[in-house]
């Protein structure tokens, strides 16, 4: 199948994902359109990661359908994802990026230049030859971002990219996400950190128990939550 000129919008139409008797996503209807970052919030186990995997195309819905730019079954040529715990290839930081460039089909002659650019972009230029698995958690997260960007994506999915990072490392990652978004790459990010959602979100999708309970522009979501679940969550109380 030919890649479409645009991956967007990504449209979920009654997407349900089940694993045995458990429903992980329940009749999701959602449109991800170009623009500011969309942030998925919700407590652990609410289905954020699964939704990202479906959007990435790693997981097929049990029921319902998903389209990218109006088409089904589009290979993930212009999509990229950074997992919560990215697997680092057992190679140097630069080789990790070169691997992604090669997988994306970039001509070999451009690898060195592009690798350098991407490492500088995420602030790892000085660690190019360091073994990726010897980098700190924050550095690994940034390297994973650079590796995802090596695919030159139209959409970038991020699954709790700062979950285990200290504030300094978190700021470094968030700064990169901001510049990525400014380059017209659609960012779709899952987090359970409300502060991070406030700092980055253009609009917010709140999930609870596999269902979307509220979709809103960030400003209105945080100022005037409409549902009981959103109010409870924003109040910092336990949502069970």
């Amino acid at each position: 199948m030919r890649a479409p000129s645009s991956e967007l919008p990504i449209v979920f139409d009654g997407v349900t994902v089940t694993a045995g008797p458990v429903t992980i996503l329940d009749r999701i209807a959602l449109t991800l359109a170009p623009g500011a970052p969309t942030v998925l919030i919700g407590p652990n186990g609410s289905g954020k990661s699964t939704l990202l995997r479906v959007a990435m195309g790693l997981l097929a819905p049990s029921r319902g359908r998903i389209t990218w730019g109006g088409l089904e079954n589009v290979p993930p040529l212009k999509r990229a994802i950074v997992f919560q715990r990215p697997a680092m290839l057992r190679r140097s930081a630069a080789a990790n990026i070169r691997f992604a460039l090669r997988a994306a089909g970039m001509p070999r002659a451009e690898h060195a230049r592009r690798t350098g650019e991407l490492l500088e972009h995420v602030g790892l230029g000085h660690l190019a030859d360091r073994a990726a698995r010897k980098l700190s958690g924050g550095e690994q997260q940034r390297l994973a971002l650079a590796r995802a960007l090596a695919r030159d994506p139209a959409v970038l999915f991020l699954d709790e990219p700062t979950a285990s990072l200290d504030p300094t490392a978190t700021k470094a990652v968030e700064d990169i996400i901001r510049t990525v978004s400014e380059r017209n790459i659609k960012v779709v990010m899952a987090t359970h950190d409300l502060g991070e959602a406030r700092r980055l979100a253009g609009d917010v999708v709140m999930l609870h128990r596999g269902r979307i309970v509220e979709t809103a522009a960030a400003a209105s979501f945080f100022d005037r939550p409409q549902t009981a679940e959103a109010k409870t969550f924003l109040a910092g109380e336990l949502l069970v």
Binding site: L58, P75, A87, L89, R90, A100, A103, R151
Partner: peptide, 24 residues
């Protein structure tokens, strides 16, 4: 098991997967 998600997300074909795994 460790690499599956990353390599699938990179849209790597079977040959690419095998060589990457053997090398690593």
């Amino acid at each position: 098991i460790e690499y599956r998600d990353e390599l699938t997300a990179m849209n790597l074909g079977p040959l690419g997967r095998v060589t990457a795994l053997i090398w690593d």
